[in-house]
């Protein structure tokens, strides 16, 4: 019972952090929210995976946050990419989007639990929220940092669900590498373009 309550709190944290990442455009808030999101995801993952394997995911996630944060910190404010004017930017629009994701997750959770018994309502709800939030994040941004944040959010949602059905160490390791790789790719994309063109490359 107590564990269930904490799990529901973790789901609430996931909803809150996903909404914060989507609505707030400040990179510090977004990365902070991502860090908290990994903590909530860690709790849900450990419902099915051993503590050590869950910890590996948490540490990897925080490493990704650190990598992205340190890279962004090194860039000037002028390096902040402008969002494409084509994409809707209104705060109300984004709140509605995350609301839709929350409603869809709430509606589908029990149904998925009926289809795949044993996963746990909290695990499914948390996972669906993250996947949905990640995908809509990708749909409303053209900024490199936020694209990587969207991908990481979506991937975390998938990892929570997949941890319930696959507990291989190799998969956990490879997923950690993928997460870390995405963080490094995100850093690279942030830095790319801010360096002077020193050599001419014609490949």
């Amino acid at each position: 019972m107590f564990i269930d309550i904490i799990s529901w709190i973790a789901v609430g944290m996931i909803l809150f952090t996903s909404a914060a990442m989507l609505i707030n455009r400040d990179w510090r808030v977004s990365l902070g929210a991502l860090g908290v999101q990994y903590l909530a995801a860690f709790w849900l993952v450990t419902r099915h995976l051993p503590f050590v394997m869950g910890s590996a995911k948490l540490i990897t996630g925080w490493m990704v946050v650190a990598v992205l944060g340190m890279t962004r910190l090194g860039l000037s404010t002028a390096d902040e990419r402008n969002e494409s004017s084509f994409l809707p930017r209104g705060r109300a629009f984004r709140i509605i989007l995350i609301g839709i994701v929350a409603f869809v997750a709430a509606g589908s959770t029990a149904r998925i639990e009926a289809l795949i018994p044993g996963l746990g309502l909290q695990v499914i709800a948390g996972s669906l929220l993250l996947i949905g939030a990640g995908i809509i994040h990708l749909g409303v941004t053209s900024d490199s940092l936020h694209i990587v944040l969207g991908l990481l959010t979506m991937l975390t949602g998938f990892e929570i669900l997949y941890a319930a059905v696959e507990s291989s160490i190799l998969v956990v390791g490879l997923l950690a590498i993928v997460n870390l790789g995405l963080g490094l790719v995100g850093s690279y994309l942030l830095v790319a373009g801010s360096m002077p063109h020193e050599v001419e490359e014609v490949l």
Partner: peptide, 14 residues
């Protein structure tokens, strides 16, 4: 993911 540094030179925006 390894392809990305190949595709985007460090001096060019993605």
């Amino acid at each position: 993911m390894l392809v990305i540094p190949l595709l985007v030179p460090i001096y060019q925006k993605a």
